[in-house]
Simulated scan of single mutants.
Amino acid sequence: MTTTKRSPNRHHCVAILLAVGSAAFGVQPAMAQAKYPDRPVRLVVPFPPGGTSDISARVLAEALAKELGQPVVVENKAGAGGSVGARYVAEAKPDGYTLLLGTTSTNGTNSAVYKNLPFDAVKSFTPITRILTVPGALSVNKKFPAANYQEFAALVKTSPGKFSYASSGNGGATHLAMEYYKTLSGMRVVHIPYRGTGPALNDVIAGQVDMIYDTLASSMPHIKSGAIVPMAIASPARLKELPNVPTFAELGLPRANEGFWNGVLAPAGLPPEVLKPLHSAIVAALKTPLVREKFAAAGALPVSDTPEAFTKIIADDVEKWSTLARNGGITAE
């Protein structure tokens, strides 16, 4: 008896060919990677709750969650001037699910004043965009014998070493910003470091120290109450809240006209297919009325960059602050 072989079903053959072709090109629908994001995103704040960075992170997280369609959870990992949280993110998987709320300190001044940071401010991260800048303000106590910057500058320049300024601590961003201003203006004032912005401001208000260079976010309540008097601000333009206070650029010191920034960074090696939608979502969130209004209430100005531009900003900051710290012998240790 002769057995006749049946021809394979045509549809069955097509299925086999498609499966082989998919395997050959690495396309396996059942195992395809899910589109980013498919689960909650963590935004690490490397400082304690309550400060400008923490507030800005929580405001951004609320708006960003709507853009991404996934929860954005803020986690505070404070310590070592922000280095603990920054290291945590630098060592995380570069998949877009662990992000850093970086600052002028974590990815700028810390590189200048700490000798053995466990990460590189530029190479260990994928910068995505800044989200805000906070103007710096040079203010004096209300007893200081100057009504404006011109009178202030004339008095300080003719009395080198007589006057003092407070900072939140050795090697902090406001300390280095004041030292940078000193190199540009040629003024000589004595540094008195404190353990935090609060105690520093309190002694300036009390008249124990003559002046302070601080973020406007911290200084504004005391400026409004008349406890301290602003001489100049580091801002792109005069602020509507302080229309009579000049910018450093107006005073002939354009290089001192840079405020402090917050931005979002991911671990190094973030793939383009994650970076692009994440960047777009953050920029969209920054344009929402919610973010703009709450940032303004905190004394901050919304801003966004391309990842390439943000990378250059960080690299330039590290170089600037490192040169300043090296020339001035400034450390935080």
Rank of each mutant, 00 (worst) to 15 (best):
residue 240 K to G: 03
residue 248 F to G: 09
residue 224 K to E: 13
residue 274 V to P: 10
residue 216 L to V: 10
residue 273 E to N: 13
residue 265 L to I: 06
residue 231 M to K: 00
residue 245 V to S: 01
residue 225 S to I: 05
residue 267 P to T: 11
residue 262 N to S: 15
residue 273 E to R: 12
residue 224 K to Y: 08
residue 234 A to K: 05
residue 266 A to E: 05
residue 233 I to P: 00
residue 235 S to P: 00
residue 230 P to V: 02
residue 241 E to N: 07
residue 239 L to E: 08
residue 228 I to Y: 01
residue 225 S to G: 07
residue 215 T to S: 14
residue 267 P to M: 09
residue 241 E to A: 11
residue 226 G to Y: 09
residue 238 R to W: 03
residue 252 G to M: 05
residue 251 L to I: 01
residue 239 L to H: 03
residue 244 N to L: 03
residue 255 R to F: 15
residue 246 P to W: 02
residue 259 G to K: 05
residue 253 L to W: 11
residue 233 I to T: 03
residue 263 G to P: 13
residue 227 A to C: 07
residue 228 I to R: 01
residue 252 G to W: 04
residue 250 E to I: 02
residue 227 A to M: 05
residue 265 L to Y: 14
residue 254 P to I: 03
residue 268 A to N: 14
residue 261 W to L: 15
residue 245 V to Y: 01
residue 229 V to N: 10
residue 219 S to P: 09
residue 217 A to Y: 11
residue 258 E to W: 07
residue 271 P to Y: 12
residue 247 T to G: 00
residue 276 K to V: 13
residue 253 L to G: 01
residue 222 H to Y: 15
residue 241 E to Q: 11
residue 243 P to W: 07
residue 240 K to C: 01
residue 253 L to F: 15
residue 260 F to K: 13
residue 219 S to G: 14
residue 236 P to W: 09
residue 229 V to I: 13
residue 266 A to K: 04
residue 269 G to N: 14
residue 251 L to N: 01
residue 265 L to V: 09
residue 219 S to R: 08
residue 267 P to F: 07
residue 270 L to F: 06
residue 255 R to T: 15
residue 273 E to L: 08
residue 240 K to S: 14
residue 242 L to N: 04
residue 257 N to F: 13
residue 249 A to I: 02
residue 274 V to K: 13
residue 227 A to S: 09
residue 271 P to L: 12
residue 243 P to F: 06
residue 257 N to E: 07
residue 220 M to C: 12
residue 267 P to D: 11
residue 224 K to S: 09
residue 248 F to Q: 05
residue 220 M to S: 12
residue 259 G to R: 07
residue 239 L to N: 03
residue 246 P to C: 05
residue 215 T to D: 11
residue 263 G to E: 12
residue 236 P to R: 02
residue 236 P to A: 05
residue 263 G to Y: 12
residue 274 V to Q: 10
residue 262 N to V: 11
residue 276 K to A: 12
residue 274 V to S: 11
residue 245 V to W: 02
residue 253 L to A: 08
residue 261 W to V: 14
residue 251 L to E: 01
residue 250 E to K: 06
residue 248 F to K: 06
residue 267 P to G: 08
residue 239 L to P: 01
